[in-house]
Write a protein that binds this DNA or RNA. Structure first.
Length: 308
DNA sequence: AAGACGAAAGTGGTTGA
DNA sequence: TCAACAACTTTCGTCTT
C-alpha cells in the first residue's frame, strides 16, 4: 500500500527519498514520513540480511489480523483553538490538522500496537518498569528514524527490549526474549544490533555477573554460593577468561564451581538448562576456571568435609 | 544407572582479504 | 563476496561414583 496521492493537496507529484525513507509531495512540501510503517514489506532497502532469493519476505512472525484491528487511531485536533484564529490561520489550521492526523495516526497506531506487544513481552519476562520504559523510548526513536521498515514490528520491539535489558544490567538471554516474543533468536539479535548501531546506543558488553542472581535462584542455591560465584567471576575476568566467551556460559560455570565448593552440588545438566547452554560449554569453562584460578583445593576440602 | 568427561563433527556468526 | 576462524552445540563413547 503506497501513498499515491498527497493527503494534503491531493497532488500526485510525490517524490520518494529512499535514503531518508520519506515521501515528499512536491506540490505542497508535505513530508509523508513513515507513511506505512506496518506495511513496509514491499520495500527492501537496508537489505543487510543476505538478500538470498526469497528472503525479500518479511522476516519474523506475521502480524495477525487481530492486531491490525486493534488500536484504531486517536482523534487529533483541538476545536477550542479554532475560536482564536482568523480565517487565514484557520485554513492553515485545517491543513495542518489534516496532515497531522494522517501522519500521526500512522505512527501512533503503530506505536500503540508496538507498546502493547512490548508490554506483553515485558510482563512475561517480569521486567522492571524502568526497562520497559527504556525499551519504549528506544522503539519510539526507532520508529521516528524509520528503522522499522523492512523488519517486523515485533522483532524491533524485541530488539529494543533486549537493548534496554542490557543497559539496565538485567540481561535476559536472547533465548528468553525469543521465547517470550515468538521471534527467532537471530532475528532479534540482528535487529538489536541494527537498532543500537543506528541510534548510537552504547552497548556495554553484558556482564556475566548479572546473570548469576537469576540462575542461582532458579537452582535454589544459597546466597553464599551465589556471592562466591560472583567472586569467582571477578577473578576470572582478571585472568581474561571472559573475553570472547558467551557470558551465560561463564556465569553458569562459575555457579557450578561455587556450588561444588559449598557442597550444594548441582549436575552440569541442571546448571546448563537454566543458563541455556550445554553441558559441554560448562565443562570447558569449568576446566578453564580450575586451571587458572587453582580452585581444586577448595573443592577437595569441601568434599572431605562433606564425607566426614 | 546416572553423571562427568572428552573427542569429533556440525552450525551460525564474525572478520579480513 | 568468500573463506578462515572462534565459540558453541550435538552426538557419542568411555570413565567414575
Amino acid at each position: 500500500m503506497y501513498v499515491k496521492k498527497c493527503p494534503e493537496c491531493g497532488g500526485i507529484n510525490l517524490f520518494m527519498n529512499r535514503e531518508k525513507g520519506e515521501i515528499i509531495c512536491k506540490d505542497c512540501g508535505l513530508v509523508v514520513e513513515d507513511k506505512m510503517v506496518e506495511f513496509g514489506q514491499e520495500w527492501r532497502e537496508f537489505d543487510s540480511d543476505g538478500g538470498d532469493e526469497g528472503s525479500r519476505r518479511r522476516t519474523g512472525a506475521p502480524m495477525t489480523y487481530t492486531q491490525f484491528d486493534q488500536g484504531l487511531g486517536t482523534e487529533v485536533g483541538q476545536k477550542a483553538d479554532l475560536l482564536s484564529l482568523g480565517a487565514k490561520d484557520r485554513n492553515k489550521f485545517f491543513r495542518l490538522r489534516k496532515w497531522q492526523y494522517r501522519i500521526s495516526t500512522a505512527i501512533e497506531r503503530n506505536l500503540k500496537l508496538a507498546l502493547a506487544e512490548l508490554k506483553r513481552v515485558s510482563s512475561y519476562l517480569k521486567l522492571p518498569k524502568s526497562v520497559e520504559e527504556e525499551a519504549a523510548m528506544i522503539y519510539t526513536q526507532a520508529v521516528q528514524r524509520g528503522l522499522v521498515r523492512g523488519r517486523s514490528m515485533e522483532s524491533v520491539v524485541s530488539g529494543a527490549l533486549y537493548a534496554a535489558c542490557r543497559r539496565h544490567e538485567v540481561p535476559r538471554t536472547l533465548d528468553e526474549l525469543s521465547e517470550a516474543s515468538g521471534i527467532e533468536k537471530k532475528e532479534i539479535g540482528r535487529t538489536y544490533r541494527f537498532v543500537t548501531r543506528e541510534l548510537g546506543i552504547t552497548i556495554l558488553p553484558s556482564n556475566p555477573a548479572d546473570y548469576i542472581a537469576r540462575f542461582a535462584s532458579s537452582l535454589k542455591l544459597s546466597p553464599e554460593t551465589q556471592s562466591k560465584a560472583v567472586d569467582i567471576l571477578e577473578s576470572a575476568q582478571h585472568e581474561e577468561l571472559t573475553s570472547g566467551r558467551g557470558p551465560t556460559g561463564i556465569a553458569a560455570a562459575a555457579l557450578y564451581v561455587s556450588a561444588l565448593i559449598h557442597g550444594e552440588k548441582r549436575t552440569q545438566r541442571e546448571v546448563a538448562d537454566v543458563a541455556g547452554v550445554t553441558e559441554v560449554t560448562i565443562r570447558n569453562r569449568y576446566k578453564e576456571l580450575l586451571e587458572k584460578l587453582k580452585l581444586e583445593r577448595e573443592i577437595k576440602k569441601t568434599k572431605k568435609k562433606g564425607k566426614k
